[in-house]
Computed example of a mutant assay.
Amino acid sequence: MNFPAALPWLAMTLALAGCATEAYRATESQCAPAAYAQYPIIQQTRMEMRTRAIQVPTGQTRCSSVVNGNRTDTVCQDIFRTEYQQYPVYVTVDINEYGRNQVITACARSQCLRTHGNPDCE
């Protein structure tokens, strides 16, 4: 995938970097094209294991009775416990994302150091 096609993804990533200064984010944007050229987006589907909580009956019940005149009404409810169950899920990941982000960060910090005297463009 080429760099222009990756702009929405880059915009989302940079938006999540909310603690960065505006100058730092602008510098990251300048560094991104070279990083995408070096580490293009390569999507790969793989299976990962996830964990979910499920409620499992214990075999016990909790009952309560209410006297209503000459009649007693009893209501029982099953008692559950939480168990954790693993399940497979297929996910699509960009296998070059980590390397590309490392290049963008190193480039941005280097340029900020040159232009602002610190690696955070402050």
Rank of each mutant, 00 (worst) to 15 (best):
F80G: 07
A5K: 12
V67S: 04
A53I: 02
P119W: 01
C31E: 13
Y90G: 12
V93D: 03
G18H: 13
N70F: 05
W9S: 12
E97H: 08
T27K: 04
F80C: 08
R71E: 09
A15I: 03
Q43L: 09
N96I: 05
V93G: 00
P33W: 07
A108I: 02
A20G: 00
A11D: 14
R71M: 08
I42N: 11
F3L: 12
T74F: 12
S110H: 02
H116G: 02
N101S: 10
D120V: 03
C19L: 06
T58Y: 01
Q38H: 10
T92K: 14
Q30D: 11
S29Q: 13
A106P: 01
A17I: 03
Y90E: 15
I95N: 11
H116S: 11
Y24G: 00
A37W: 04
Q55E: 14
A5L: 13
T58R: 04
E48H: 09
C121H: 03
M1Q: 08
M47R: 15
N118G: 04
N96R: 04
T27H: 02
G59N: 09
D94Q: 01
P119M: 02
Y24A: 05
S65R: 06
R25E: 06
R52E: 12
N118L: 00
M47H: 07
V91L: 10
A5W: 07
N101R: 11
E122P: 06
T13N: 09
F3N: 13
R50W: 09
I41T: 15
Q60R: 14
E22K: 15
Y39S: 03
F80M: 14
T45R: 08
R81T: 08
C112M: 00
I41H: 14
T27V: 05
V103A: 11
S110A: 04
I54P: 00
F80A: 09
C31A: 15
P8K: 09
P57V: 05
A6G: 07
P57S: 09
T115P: 01
A37Y: 06
R71K: 08
A11C: 11
E48V: 14
R109S: 10
V103Y: 06
G69K: 00
A15D: 14
R25I: 13
Q85D: 11
E22Y: 12
T72S: 11
V91K: 12
A53L: 01
E28Y: 03
R52I: 03
Y36R: 10
I54V: 12
A17H: 12
C121V: 02
G18C: 15
V89I: 15
G99P: 07
T92C: 14
N2L: 06
C31N: 15
A23L: 10
D94N: 08
Q77Y: 07
V75A: 14
Y87R: 06
G18M: 11
L7Q: 12
Q111T: 03
T58Q: 03
F3D: 13
